[in-house]
Every structure is written in structure tokens, then in C-alpha cells.
Design a protein around this nucleic acid. Structure first.
Lengths: 325, 325
DNA sequence: TTGTAGGCGTTATCAA
DNA sequence: TTGATAACGCCTACAA
């Protein structure tokens, strides 16, 4: 457990010279450098990041707050964050709020206690999670990035996929496949989110025809509750705003002997393994989760270092064509 | 940014009294307690975990080292760890080694620099990852738990699913469905791991007949390379030791017009969402990933606190019957 | 180019 | 039941 002091003694210099040399704050004489280097090797010195953090009043730990980690979408985003942070010698804390059963106040306290350098909040489409806490974080001077969901506040950077573009390219894709009676299937979503998709739809089609909106619930039997609606309305293209629901709806359609693609094109929002292994494989709109994570991490690092950063980063979704359209 | 000292002054006691009161090391007079409490409230005091760690020479940060987080199995384990740690006021660091491109030596340094309180290594079935580093960790006095994979070293606790039992109940299940010509499909695995499954098979069947072993590769075309082998050998039950491969093999079988369950039962190792959304839904052996995470976390906490802990924890797999058998 | 000294916020060791 | 004092390992004025 050699300390900086030990190195200094062993190399016959002062601790502060060693410190400045290690932090590259200063150029030292060649001979000094060599003595320091051998001392470090011989004593097996490893700097103590905790002591440094205390002194500097700043850690190198970034927290990711997300609903749950065991979901392909969130873990993909997290992976992007992880890769980026590690390159810059920052560590990644994970806080799963769905499983935690902690109040937002508890989480705020947790962040302050641990002197978290920056916080990336991965938001839900369906719910403005942690809206309140963000301002607490900012009040305490902790940099924040809000990721995955566009919110209209403007005191912190946000990174999110362009859902209007998603709606547009989704509609264009379905139209290009000759599907002109389109349904938008979604779980409960705030109107302002749905509106984004609808705006995209309008941009894609000249006609004023609106897509049929179908809201589904978690415990819904899609075969019984959703498929008949699609058929009654002569829908031939469906855009499902949730990947897992898209998979289940596809199953239900297949079971009802509807030919996927020919009779009914299915388009899923999100491109994880789920779309790939569905039968048939789902055409989808890729929301660039990995990139979302990378960008979020880059921005939080800029914030932490008090460098310039983009206040708003919008990621362009793109179509990945498979068998379902 | 009130400190302990501020609280002490405000409450007219010494800093160390406040400290001991907060850490419940001591009983203080009712009146003192009240004064401290109001001071904390009025000044909005939040303890500084970093300073505490420096003084105590021990953080409350546990690191999870895993191949990658964006996998349903690993993220499920991680979720179990996360839930357990947070309950005990420990934080969770994530280090993805596949994506990191860090040497093991780098990781060891990272752990020491950050004064990590304990490390949970999530191992691969296919590869004894981080075998070397473990001893470095132990050498530096950092508690370790090796999770997910049974290894024969004994200087640190291990937590893993009973693969022999998995083989046994898998074989029993297939036999109970009248499938007596069984194949074991697997990716490249060390022999000692395969042996575990084979031992289980033998326990399940009186006959000496060994299952047909088929090794598949990542870039393999299962329809062309694997299905014909199954058919030529009149296999009617296949146990796939990798969930994703099971899904793809099922697809290939369906495509070859083989009736799943009737003509060929498919059993998958692992029970994530993938098995559930496969068509048909896969019967599988659940390896209890969430529980694995919870147990690993509990054990690392015991180690950190220098309490007694189980050196070996074996989790019992169980069958989840769905449509593919 | 290098050194001295003080302090970051907390806890542990004494002593009262 | 409480206090004074000295660390924990590092960084940063300021001085040389």
C-alpha cells in the first residue's frame, strides 16, 4: 500500500513533485522522472482515487439512473455509456429505480453522499420519470444528461431519438410497400409523444388520412382484443411502438392465419435481438440505442469538465428491413 | 455543503459526537440527539461517503465484472446484484470487459485505485475468464465472488447453477415426452463443462446410450449444417445449451417442416425473454439468473463485513414447460 | 524546476 | 456521555 509520500521519499523528491508529475501538470527533469518511475515500479504504487476525489471535491464516478437494467434496450444504452466512460477513466454506477423502491429524495441523497460527478437519466417514453429530481441535481451542482426521451426543459442537455422522423420513415416504408391502411399500435403513452409519431406520419403522406390508433394494455389478449380491430378496419400495415408488443402481435397475426408482409406488414419500433428472432423476423425502426449511450456519456463528460456541449442531440432513426414488410 | 463540523458547531457538540451518533456507535443524550437532528435538518447536511471511505480505508462500492451488459442473461444477474446491494447501501460499478479492451492488469489497477470493496466476476461457461486476476484481487485483499461458472479453485466463494442437475432434468424431461434419441447441441465448450451435462444425462437414463453431441459455430448455417445431422441420426429430442442457438435451431427446424414437439422436442438452456417469444415458445431449463445475482451479492457483502459465508452455492435449475416439447 | 504547509470531511484513539 | 487531536492520501497555493 505505497502512498505518494513513499514514492517521494524513495525517489528523493517531494510528494508534490510526484503528484504534479503524475497529473502531468508539470515537466520534470529527465533524471527525476526516471527516479519516480522506478520508485513506482519497485513499490507497486497505485494512486488512490478516493483521496484525490476528496481533495478535488470531485469523483470520477458517473451514475446511470434507469428503470431496469434487464431489458435489451436499456442495457444497450448502458453499454454505450460504459464503453465511453471507461475510455476516459470514469466509472459507471448503476441505479435501477424500478427495482429499488427508493423515493426520488433518497436517490438525490445517494448522489450527493457519493459525490457523483454526473448523472445520466435514461427516461421512459411513457412517463416523465425523475422530472422533479433533475432540478435537485442541478441545484446541487451535479451535471445531468436526460437521455432517450425528449422533454421540454432546457436547463440541462438532452439526447433522444427523433420520433417524428421515426414516424415519417415508418409511414414511408409502409406506403412504399403498398400499405395504405395503417394502424399505430401502442401502449399507454402521453399525448405529446404520440403526437410526434403522428406528425411524422403526416409528413410522409400527402393524404390527410390519419392512422388508426390502437392502445393496448399489458394484460391484453392481442389475438382477441387487437387482431379483430385490425381486420375490421381493413388495416394492411401496422406500426407497433414497442418492440415486444410487435413480436406478440406478430404471433397473434400468424395464429389468425394472416400472412405477414403480404396481408399485413408489421413494423416494430426498436431493433434489438427480439425483432431479429421473431418469426418472421421483424422489419423495424432502429433508434440507435448504442449511439444514444455513447453520446450521452460524451456530453456528461463535457459537462463535468466544463467544456462546451450540445444542449440538444437528436439521433436519426433508420429502417432495418427484414421479413415482416 | 454543510459538513459534520458545521453540524457539530450548530448543535454545540463536538464533531466526533455527531459522527458517532450518525454511525450509531454510541447512545447520546436525548437533548443532544434533538439538537443534532435539528442541525442536520436546518443545514441540509448530507454525509460525505468519500471522506468516510478515505478514513476507513474502505468504500461501499462493489464492482461487477462481466463480458457484456447487453445480454438478457448477464443483465438479469446484474439486476439481482443491483437490488441486493442497494438494500445494504452499497453501490454497483459495472465493468464490461468484452467491450473494454482493457488488459486484466488494467482492471486490477482500476479496482485498487478506486478502493473497490468487493468484486463479483460473472464468468462464462465457455471460458475461464479472469482466472489470473482473481489471485491478484485476493492478494490485494479485495473480496471476490466468482459467479455463474463452477471453477475448482477454492480460495474464494463461488456461486453457480448445477449443470449436472440441468442435464439430468433436461434428459428426464425429454424422456418423459417419449424422446429417446437425444442430441446435445452446443457451442464450443471446455470438456469439463460438457461433462457436467453428460453426467446428468447418465443419471437420468438407465440405458448407457449417450446423447449425440453436436458442436455448432457462430457463423454456422443451422439449416444446412445442423438439421441434416439431427435427421440422419433420427434424433427426436434436442437439448440446446445456449438459448439463442435454441431459438435459431427451432427456426431452422420449422423451416424444414419438422413439427416441433411432435417430431422433435427442443429444450433450451436458459429462460429469458428469448425462449418466451420464440415460435413455438421454448420449453427450457431455468438457471435462476436473478437468484444467482442476489446470492452473489449477499456473499460479497458477507465477505466485506468479514462475516461467515458459504464458500460454494449451487443453484437448482428447474424446467419451465412451454410448447416446444 | 522543486519544496513546504495546510486542508478536503471523516473517524479512531485517547483522555476527561 | 463527550472532546481534543491526529490521521487517511492527495492536491495546491505559495514560496524558494
Amino acid at each position: 500500500m505505497a502512498t505518494l509520500k513513499d514514492i517521494a521519499e524513495h525517489a528523493n523528491v517531494s510528494a508534490c513533485t510526484v503528484s504534479r508529475y503524475l497529473n502531468k501538470n508539470i515537466v520534470v527533469k529527465k533524471s527525476t522522472e526516471e527516479r519516480i518511475q522506478t520508485a513506482i515500479k519497485e513499490l507497486g504504487y497505485v494512486p488512490n482515487v478516493v483521496a484525490k476525489a476528496l481533495k478535488r471535491k470531485e469523483t470520477t464516478n458517473v451514475a446511470v439512473i434507469l428503470p431496469k437494467i434487464n431489458s435489451l434496450n436499456y442495457s444497450e444504452i448502458t453499454s454505450g455509456i460504459s464503453q465511453t466512460l471507461i475510455k476516459h477513466n470514469y466509472n459507471l454506477f448503476i441505479y435501477e429505480v424500478d427495482n429499488l423502491h427508493l423515493s426520488e429524495a433518497d436517490v438525490v441523497q445517494l448522489m450527493r453522499e457519493n459525490m457523483i460527478a454526473g448523472i445520466i437519466i435514461i427516461g421512459l417514453f411513457s412517463d416523465l420519470s425523475f422530472k422533479e429530481s433533475i432540478y435537485s441535481f442541478i441545484e446541487w451542482g451535479i451535471p445531468v444528461v436526460y437521455a432517450n426521451r425528449c422533454i421540454s426543459y432546457s436547463d440541462f442537455p438532452i439526447v433522444y431519438p427523433d420520433l417524428t422522423k421515426a414516424g415519417k420513415i415508418g409511414a414511408e416504408h409502409l406506403l412504399s410497400k403498398g400499405k395504405n391502411r395503417i394502424a399505430l399500435v401502442h401502449k399507454k403513452l402521453p399525448y405529446e409523444v404520440l403526437e410526434l409519431f403522428l406528425n411524422g406520419f403526416h409528413q410522409a403522406s400527402d393524404c390527410e388520412q390519419k392512422p388508426l390508433m390502437i392502445e393496448i394494455e399489458d394484460d391484453m389478449n392481442l389475438s382477441k382484443d387487437c387482431v379483430p380491430i385490425l381486420l375490421q378496419n381493413h388495416i394492411n400495415g401496422v406500426f407497433v411502438l414497442n418492440e415486444l408488443s410487435a413480436v406478440y402481435l406478430t404471433k397473434a397475426l400468424v395464429q389468425a392465419d394472416i400472412r405477414i408482409a403480404e396481408d399485413m406488414a408489421v413494423l416494430s419500433l426498436g431493433n434489438s435481438l427480439l425483432s431479429q428472432i421473431s418469426t418472421p423476423e421483424l422489419t423495424c425502426v432502429d433508434l440507435q440505442n448504442l449511439e444514444l449511450g455513447i453520446r450521452s456519456a460524451e456530453i456528461i463528460l463535457s459537462e463535468i469538465r466544463k467544456e462546451e456541449f450540445e444542449p440538444v442531440t437528436v439521433l436519426e432513426p433508420f429502417i432495418v428491413e427484414r421479413k415482416s414488410s
